[in-house]
Amino acid sequence: MRRLLLLPAVVAVAACTTAPSVSEHPKPSPRELEEVTAVLKRDFRARGQATMDRVELDEVQRLCNLHADNPPAELARPIEETQLKAIPFPAGSMMGDWKNGEKIAQSGRGAMWSDKPGVQEGGSCYNCHQISPKETAFGTIGPSLAGYGKTRGNRPEIQRYVYGKIYNSKAYNACSQMPRLGHSKTLNEQQIKDLVALLLDPASPVNQ
């Protein structure tokens, strides 16, 4: 009871005190970046499938960290190109089974130290995107993908773009917040094809 009564008073006091000055998103120097990696190597440990090589930065992570996710185009473009070149696009149709794609999109599991490798891997798609109209518990970090194929069709070029974007989002936007689901070996070729179908198959609930 005492606690509840105290609350309005203390909130009023809090509103009067000045907030500390916090710089929004600082850009580390290359040396500072190395220091952070050294701290991670010292203070983290491998657990399950989450091995210590994960703290090493690749060219994408290095670029985005150094430029606070906003690199100049002349630095971003060559990196996007090398990322794009490294995508092993499958030959032929990239449309898998949208029903299985929906399951993968729903699952938030995969690649964590608590996950068994090769079991229940998901794309965590609904964590950030609106996709099928049937799922109302969707996140908003990424854009809505509702009706994605309805407006774009499913020509080979569109399939290729969607496959590539899921495989390696950084090939199209170097500092995208979206994980590189194929590049990181979280999802395999068939799973990505199933997600392509979820977005592009005319029979998928996404396009109803």
């Binding site: 916090v22 710089s23 998103h25 600082p26 580390p28 500072e32 970046l33 952070v36 990696t37 701290v39 991670l40 989450a50 994960r54 703290v55 090493e56 930065l57 994408v60 992570q61 985005c64 960290n65 606070a68 996710d69 690649a111 609904y126 964590n127 950030c128 518990a137 969707f138 996140g139 908003t140 970090i141 950084k170 917040q177 994980p179 590189r180 990181s184 070996k185 979280t186």
Partner: peptide
């Protein structure tokens, strides 16, 4: 150091703390 760690992107999914806690009015699920 804490501030640098907060914004530091690394790992299999290129995440930092700010990937989820860096933009206003966003949600996961």
């Amino acid at each position: 150091l804490g501030q640098k760690l907060f914004f530091h992107r690394a790992g299999s999914w290129d995440f930092s703390c700010a990937s989820c806690h860096g933009e206003e009015d966003k949600r996961i699920r």
